[in-house]
Every structure is written in structure tokens, then in C-alpha cells.
Amino acid sequence: MKMYFSNSDYLAYFDGFLNKLNLTNKTNLTIETHPKWINVHPAILTLAASLALQVGKDNVQIPNLTASSGSYLDSMGLFNFTSQKSPYLINKKDPSGRFIPLTIIKTPTEQSQFISEMIPLLHLPPEKASAIKYVVGELIRNVLEHSMNKSGAIVAAQYYKKSNTIRIGICDNGIGIRQSLSKFWPGHTKNDVDAIKWALTPGVSGTTTNAGGTGDNAGAGLFFIKSIAKVTRNYFMIYSGSGIYKLLLRDKRSENPRLTINPEDDRHSERTNAPYLHGTLVAIDLTLDSNLDEFDKLLAKIRTSYGDAIRLRQKRQYRRFKFI
């Protein structure tokens, strides 16, 4: 397998990253890098780490690492996933970092500990913390519950001062969204991107066809997170199997965006032919100067559209008389 870290691997340019991603030959992983400047989204680092777990430390190479900004890879803990030594000398306790290095979470207890420790690491004020805790909590839980893989969730995040944004990535080596949904929703899992879009639909869970979910699952998590990204005008992307769904930025002029039930109706891009990823990668950006301060108001917006969606699905499930 091969991947390339460029100087602009943001979610906006994820297609560029994909063009150089090769996920065949799963015995080794080579990470090539831009010679002068490396700038990668934390989600790409979580992908690299999850692929490294698949092939084993001794089979991961990062050759010709010459970019001075490559020390970022060290700070983020990528060298913990390879036997190769870091060529950089860094101060790992640098308090100005405002990042969460690559972390593996395998149990709900580790999840709770991570959630409580992550906010101080990102130096976030309490009013900004709720949305970040919410998003990360839901995404990690999804992996622990649905990925069916013991290697757990790999998480990383980074604060970017220039854009005042937290970028978050979570990746796993699990069964993927399509297989997770296929038991109860065979008609909605014809390909990976169909399955991703169905998973983003309110009330869709991999554990039941009931619109209200089970006692433990509602099928609301991903819809909420997509909605948070949409209202705050941020990127949100899911990559699973050969499918990718990416929520694009909504028009700046629309102050009160309408939350749509069908992810097809959101401004998005999708791919059905991405290199096949065994597992799921979720990436989200959260701009801190957006309306994250009033998280309850943001949730109230989502509440209305979620209620509408469930009512609509309930009606769709009404049995009908036959007229002859």
C-alpha cells in the first residue's frame, strides 16, 4: 500500500490525496512525503495509523523524509506505528501544540477517559467544548459498537489557529458501513456510498428497522453530526469501502440552513470508486468562531428536523388497505 502526504491534504482537496492512494498489496505500507512541506488533516494520519496496524510496525516505511514540518508527524505520534525512528527532535510536552496525537481507543472506559482529557489538550474554553465532546463521543462509540474489530478506534485532532478550526479524524479497520447495515437494510446497501447515505438518514440503525430504534440504538448519531457540520458550515466526510460522501460547505449567504432529511439533498460530493478501504474513516472540521457557543440552540434546530424525519418514516411504514 502507498500513500502520499502533500502540503495541502485538507478535506477540500481529499480527491488529490486519493489519487495517490494505493490500498492494494496489504503486506506493507509506504508513506511518501512532500520534500519541503507536509500539511495533512488528522484524519489522514488516522488512516495511515490504521493501515499501519494492518501491516505491522516492521512493514511501514516513511522514506526520504526531508520536510522540516515533518516533525508534525512525530508530534502526532505516527512513529509509534512504525519501527522507523523519527529523524526529528521535538518537545513532546509543548503546551502550545493544541493537538491530540494518534490515540487508540478500544473500550468504553478508554473512551470516557479520552473525552475528559481531550478538552484540556486542545485548550478549549468550556463553551466550545460541548460540541467537540459530543461529536467525538458519538463517533468513537460508533466504532466500538458497530465496527466489529478489536483494534478499536484511532483518533487524532488538531487546532488550526489561522482558520480557528479543530480538525478531527477517526478511523477503524472494521467491517465498514455497508456490511454493518446489510443485515437489516439489504435494499439500501447495493454499494458503499448508498450504505453511507442510508447511515446518514435519521432513524437508520444497523441493529433494527424500527424508526425509533432499539433500547440501545436510535440511528441518529451520524445525522446529528452531519447536521452540526452543516449548520456550522464545515466539512464532514465518511469514507468506507470504495464509497466516499463529503458534505461540502454551504453558501455563506444562507444564514439559516435548512436541515435536510435525505443526505442526497445536501450540497455534497460522492465517489463510488475510491481505493477499497477495509473499515471506515470519518473526518470533520469544526470552526470555533461559528455558533458552537450556543450548542443547545444548534441541537434545537436538529431536533425539529429529526422529529419531522421520524414522523415521515412512521407514515411510510403504515400498512395500507388494498383497493380492487
Binding site: G212, L299, G307
Partner: peptide
């Protein structure tokens, strides 16, 4: 309850009753 918790409780109570 904080406002955040209150709204999440209201969301769950609503959609759960919708699906009864």
C-alpha cells in the same frame, strides 16, 4: 440539567413517542 442536556432529553422523548 444544562440547556444542552435539556434539549437532548427533549429530542429523545419526542422521537421515542413518535415511534410508539
Amino acid at each position: 440539567c444544562t440547556d444542552d442536556i435539556k434539549i437532548v432529553i427533549q429530542i429523545v422523548e419526542e422521537y421515542t413517542q413518535e415511534s410508539l
